[in-house]
């Protein structure tokens, strides 16, 4: 039984991950970038050989019943894709759901919904703020998204110039503004941390693509590139479509806690995020911020007692 030849399962070499087709036979490289509990993230190309893309694979989980595994994978891949497509269509989709998109000015006047949910946020307002979906296969458990250049906000803050507090405040305000837009569009992220917020180099014109992006790429090791750049949100694996104040407040609470523990020295400045959030969320923002105070008192989970 305990023969020495027998490999202990825990001691075997990490198996080379098998990619789902068509990537398993592809001559184009797929480079593993990150790994989470549910999925693997690769950098590759898609549609054209020069377009960088993020391939997110949810490998089969052998310990689950195959039918259940298929269903869960399908649900999760699709949930993420639907949220991203919905967001990329913000302000572009024709007037469904009572949304005023054609004329933002007129829309604002007319909007009287109490929670401010489902308001249009303007033409393509979230374009560039979330990655676009380029392709997916829910049967095989993969999704390909636009590649977001830049560094995570976490890296940027770690590498920041400590003397420049104004730059950090500006960054935090931009984050708050983007989260406000996200919530306004009817989506909560579910896993807001500074690792899931990217700081992408500002691209002056939308037509300049990869080459430009590569050149102006924010440095790898705090080369003074600083805290400038556009905010983009990534990893919508836990995102849900919701306009409830509770979900929104919890989303902010998660970010607040994550920020506090990742950046203890900067914790005191988190108010900037909330302030900008309130501004970009508009009317509904105040209610959410008030609710956030309740959430702080009790934690993320709603008490089920009484």
């Amino acid at each position: 039984m305990a023969s020495s030849q027998e490999d202990h399962p825990l001691q075997t070499q990490p198996q080379p991950r098998t990619l789902p087709p068509p990537f398993n036979t592809s001559p184009a490289p797929c480079v593993l970038i990150a790994q989470g509990a549910e999925s693997l993230l690769y950098r590759t190309t898609f549609l054209t050989p020069t377009q960088p893309a993020a391939l997110k694979v949810r490998p089969e989980k052998k310990w689950r019943h195959p039918t259940l595994d298929k269903r869960l994978t399908r649900q999760r891949v699709l949930a993420e894709a639907r949220v991203l497509v919905k967001l990329s269509g913000e302000g572009i989709v024709a007037g469904g759901g009572g949304r005023k998109v054609k004329d933002p000015k007129k829309g604002k006047e007319k909007e009287s919904g109490g929670d401010g949910g489902g308001e249009g946020v303007g033409v393509g307002a979230l374009r560039g703020v979330v990655p676009a979906v380029l392709g997916l296969d829910w049967e095989r458990g993969w999704i390909v998204m636009e590649w977001i250049e830049g560094v995570t906000v976490k890296q940027a803050i770690y590498a920041r110039d400590l003397a420049d507090e104004a730059a950090l405040k500006g960054l935090l305000r931009r984050i708050g503004g983007v989260v406000g837009l996200l919530h306004k569009a009817g989506v909560v992220h579910g896993d807001l941390t500074t690792s899931n917020v990217m700081l992408r180099p500002t691209v002056s014109s939308s037509s300049t693509t990869t080459e430009e992006g590569e050149k102006t790429k924010v440095g790898d090791g705090g080369d003074g590139a600083g805290l400038d750049g556009d905010i983009a949100l990534i990893d919508f694996g836990l995102a849900t479509q919701s306009i409830s104040d509770e979900d929104r407040a919890v989303d902010l609470y998660v970010l607040e806690r994550a920020f506090g523990s990742t950046h203890p020295k900067e914790e005191g400045l988190f108010g900037e995020v909330l302030e900008a959030y309130g501004e970009s969320m508009g009317k509904g923002g105040k209610v959410v911020l008030r609710r956030l105070e309740d959430v702080r008192m009790r934690g993320r989970k709603k008490s089920m007692i009484g």
Partner: peptide
Amino acid sequence: YKVDVVSQEAEAYIIGCIAI
């Protein structure tokens, strides 16, 4: 595609619709 805007911004949405 039931969109109001036909531009660069719409491309991402339209490709996303095809994908899902």
